[in-house]
Simulated scan of single mutants.
Amino acid sequence: SLAGTSKADKVTKVKVALEELRWLPSDLGSPRVFINQPAFTASYIDNGEEKLKTRVVVGKVTNQTAFFYDQIEQVDFHPYWGVPQSIIVNEMLPRLRNDPGYLDRAGYEVTDSSGRRVPSSAVNWGAYGANIPYSVRQQPSEANALGELKILFPNKHAIYMHDTPQKSFFERDMRALSHGCVRLQDPRGMAAAVLGTSVDYVTEKLKHGHSNEKVTRTIPVYVAYFTAWPDLAGNVEYFDDVYDRDTRLMQALDATEAVRSPAS
């Protein structure tokens, strides 16, 4: 896709990247995790060295991954998946109206507003629209949407990194395919990196079922969006503007410049 990228397009991408850099700390810190959504990659960088780089899947255009930074706090092994209300309403509810017991069969737990477990088949799903007074979570299993582990950095966007059973997505070039969270091709490698341990240690932890472990070091994570970004050797790489954010940012910059320019 880069064969048709003109020098002018590359200059625009760099201009946008320079503006977006202002949104981040001047010192990104070390160690750090850097996710670049248009590149569909996540890197663990320590002492100026990229110790790990893995492919990722990010949010679909209709479920975009946000641009923010936070701090990694915890790794969950064999996690539960708390199903977001939007997925319950938009994706599960149509099926539940015809097949109310399917959550019971598929390894999900349903709880009412007071936290009591109830069978999915006992709920009159047809009585609800956008507001459903039940919570749904998927039990740890090979079929769990989060796979075998998730890496948490609590934030208002409810975004985190996790494994996935849908491994085939990593073979695609365009990997904006999730509901917004960041799926990792090498979750064990990333978990070992942020915990400061080995993949063998992570593998051993996974043999013992559901558990979690706190990250004891300060590790910032950048969930970033740069269509131009240098590798650690300083060579700038260019990526497709998958969410069309560059266009809108250039419009904002142009509008700002027009307001600031003295009237002729």
Rank of each mutant, 00 (worst) to 15 (best):
K167V: 06
C181N: 00
A127F: 04
F153M: 14
R188H: 03
F170W: 01
D112C: 04
D104K: 12
A106H: 11
T197Y: 08
V199I: 15
V89G: 00
G189Q: 02
Q139E: 15
P187E: 09
G126F: 00
R183G: 05
N155P: 07
E171I: 01
A143Y: 02
L146P: 08
D99A: 09
G101S: 12
A145W: 01
A191L: 09
G126M: 01
V199C: 03
R116L: 10
D173K: 15
V199N: 10
N131C: 00
I88Q: 07
G196I: 11
V136K: 04
R172C: 02
E142Y: 10
N124L: 05
Y128K: 10
L177P: 06
S121C: 00
A127E: 14
M190W: 10
D112S: 11
D186L: 00
N155W: 12
A158L: 13
I151K: 05
R105V: 01
R97C: 03
A158R: 14
S86A: 10
W81F: 09
Y160H: 13
R117F: 09
N98P: 00
G107R: 12
G82I: 11
D173Q: 13
S135I: 02
L177D: 02
T203F: 01
Q185K: 14
S121Q: 10
N144D: 06
Q185T: 01
D163W: 08
Y201Q: 07
P154E: 01
K205F: 05
R172F: 11
Y160D: 12
Y108S: 10
L184N: 07
A143L: 07
V202M: 03
F169N: 11
I88L: 15
G115K: 12
R183W: 00
G189F: 04
P133S: 07
A145C: 04
V118C: 07
M92F: 15
I87Y: 08
V83E: 09
G129S: 15
I159T: 15
W125E: 10
A122K: 09
S113I: 12
Q185A: 14
T164F: 02
D99W: 06
E109N: 13
E109H: 10
P154H: 05
V83N: 08
G107W: 12
L149M: 15
V202Q: 04
Y128F: 15
R116Q: 15
L206P: 10
